[in-house]
Each structure stands twice: as structure tokens, then as C-alpha cells.
Simulated assay, not measured.
Amino acid sequence: MLREAIASVSKFHGYIISNVDARVKDYPLMQSPLQMTGILVAYVMFSVYIGPRMMANRKPYGLHRAMIVYNLCMVLLNAYIVYEFMMSGWATTFTWRCDLIDPSSSPQALRMVRVAWLFYFSKYIELLDTVFFVLRKKQSQITFLHVFHHSFMPWSWWWGVTLTPAGGMGSFHALVNAAVHVTMYTYYGLSAAGPRFQKYLWWKKHMTAIQLIQFILISVHISQYYFMDKCDYQYPMWIHLIWMYGIFFFFLFSNFWVQAYIKGNRLPVGDHKPKQNGLISEHVTNMANGKPHENGYAHHYANDKIILGKVKKI
């Protein structure tokens, strides 16, 4: 039985390797799913077990300068990703409707392959969000949803980049997500820079709205597929998965919006300091990656100050 199972897994692994797109097979972390799976398993172990025990008897690190540099680098990286997505099709030859997967080796297709891989690779860089939490002993922010999202995103994107690196209309959600990351990491970087930059953060109350707009754009765009007379997109499965992703997270964020801003389930004023991968807690890397508030944490705005606490009716 065990021998048969091992043989089946080995056969499946060989099948996957044989179907890796030739244009991306030489990129880092694309040779086998075992590489990226190993990294992500190590990430999960560090986040929930090794890291917290390593820091148990240590003082939390400040890391303020590191976080400023990190957030600035993430702004620049995501801005570059947006630009490359636009120039490799979305601002040049795409119709924004039924744009098919390009299997060719044209300069534009190869450019899309490169930026698709870069977007995928950026998800590994974002694992540093969690590392900052661990080193600063903000373990309450490392929830199941946080760890699952950060590990599942690069894992799932490996399959997309492996099979369809020049994904046509299936790459729109990556373009939008990278654009949102530019906004979010700009906010977090300014927040980390200190109180003197608070006057430039007047748009902090619109963070949830930005996320809702993201999911609306993704859902509306991908929904076109279901109303077209004909669209021969080569991997319809990606269409269905992207649509479910957009709808699922739209409802999660809509629920938060209703609870926090319509029903008024706000927070009591307290003495808590703002946090994010060192900064504002609503980040918890979730707003930047399309996730709702975790563990019931949310913002409360009092006298233009952001306070962290548990959501409850008052």
C-alpha cells in the first residue's frame, strides 16, 4: 500500500514537472512544487511554533527603521509590478474583456511571464510581515487566517505561473492587488515614520473602502466571461476560482463595513498603541493582501487617533 502511494505521488510529481511552462521553468522556485512547499511549511512552523518559543524569554525588537525600509521597498516593488503588467498587455494590446492566454515567445508574452513570476515571488517577500510580528512579540496578530493567507497565496500562484504565466484576463486580479499594495504599504511606511507624518494620513479611514473597490473590480471584470457569447479562454478553471475569490472577500469586508460603520459596533477608548507589521493593526498584513480583521480586532477613531481593541457593542 505504501509503495503504491509513493509510486502514485512520484508519478504525479513527474507529470507536473513535465507540464511546467518552458518559458518559466528556469526561474527560481519554479522547478518543483517541493521547493516552495518546503519554504511555506518552514514559514508556518516558524510563525506558530518556533518563532514564539524563540522570543518567549527575549525582549521584543523595535525594528522601526527596518519596517520603514521594508515598506518603502514594497511600495517600489509593487509599483514596478503594476507598470510591467500594464506594459505587457493591460495598457497596450488587451481588450479588458476576453483576453486569452498567450502561449507564444513574443516580447510582450515574455514580459508578461516575467512580471507574473515577480508577482508570485513578491508573496514570499511578504512573509516578512509575519517575521516582524514574531520578532516584535505581536503574537496576537498571527492568527490562523493570517498564516493561511500568507502561505496559501504563493502556493496557489505557483500553479498559475507554472501552467499559464502569460495568463491574459486571468492576470487582472494580480494587477489590481499590486496597485492596492502600493497604496497600503505607502500608508504603513508613513505611519512607521512617526507622528510628524500623521497629517499626511487623512485617508486612513478609507482603507476598507479601497479593499471593497478592489474586490468589486476583480469580480466585475472576471464575471464578463459568463455573459460573453464566446470566449475561448484556455483554462476556465482559473476564471471560476478568481470569481469565487473576489466574491468571498467582498462579503467578508462588507460584513466588517456594516458592523463597524453602519451598526456602530465601535471600540471603547483605551490606552492601546497602534500597531502594524509594526504599525496600525488593521494592516495585520490583511488589508494589503485582501483579508478582514482577524481575532475581532479593528480600528476605533477617537479625536483623530487610532486605537486598537476588541470589537464589542457599546
Rank of each mutant, 00 (worst) to 15 (best):
A302F: 15
H300V: 13
G296A: 04
F248I: 14
H64L: 10
W117I: 00
F172C: 03
I247T: 13
F12H: 12
S219W: 07
E126A: 01
Y61I: 00
S18I: 06
A66L: 13
F144I: 11
K312D: 15
K204G: 08
N255V: 12
C73Q: 04
F250K: 04
Y301I: 10
V284Q: 10
L279M: 08
A5P: 01
G189P: 00
S88T: 02
T92K: 03
K199W: 11
S105Q: 12
A109R: 04
F197S: 10
F133P: 05
S281D: 07
F250N: 07
V75R: 01
L100D: 05
H300W: 13
F144R: 11
I210H: 15
N78D: 02
M169V: 01
E126K: 02
R53L: 15
K11S: 11
F132E: 03
P28H: 06
Y226D: 04
V147I: 02
E282M: 10
T285R: 10
V269S: 13
I6Y: 09
Q35L: 07
F94K: 06
L163Y: 13
V134C: 10
W96L: 09
P236Q: 12
M112C: 02
M67E: 09
S140G: 14
L77E: 00
M86S: 11
W96N: 04
Y225L: 05
N265A: 14
N78G: 04
G160K: 01
Q31H: 07
M1L: 12
N277C: 08
M45E: 08
A22S: 11
Q35V: 08
Q224P: 06
A179Q: 01
L34M: 13
S171F: 03
W117L: 00
S191M: 08
T183Y: 14
R111C: 00
M45T: 13
L29R: 07
F251E: 08
Y233R: 05
W158R: 03
T208W: 05
P28K: 01
S140T: 11
G62N: 15
D271Q: 15
L77V: 04
R266I: 10
K59C: 00
K275F: 03
H149A: 03
F12Q: 11
Y83C: 03
W243Q: 13
L34I: 14
N289P: 05
K263V: 06
L212R: 07
L212D: 09
C73I: 05
D99P: 04
G290C: 05
S171V: 02
R114F: 01
L72W: 07
V113Y: 02
A56R: 14
Q276M: 08
K25Y: 06
L110V: 08
S191K: 09
G189A: 00
I307F: 12
A192K: 00
A42N: 08
E282V: 10
A288Y: 01
F253M: 14
L241M: 11
N255H: 14
F250P: 03
K263W: 12
P60L: 02
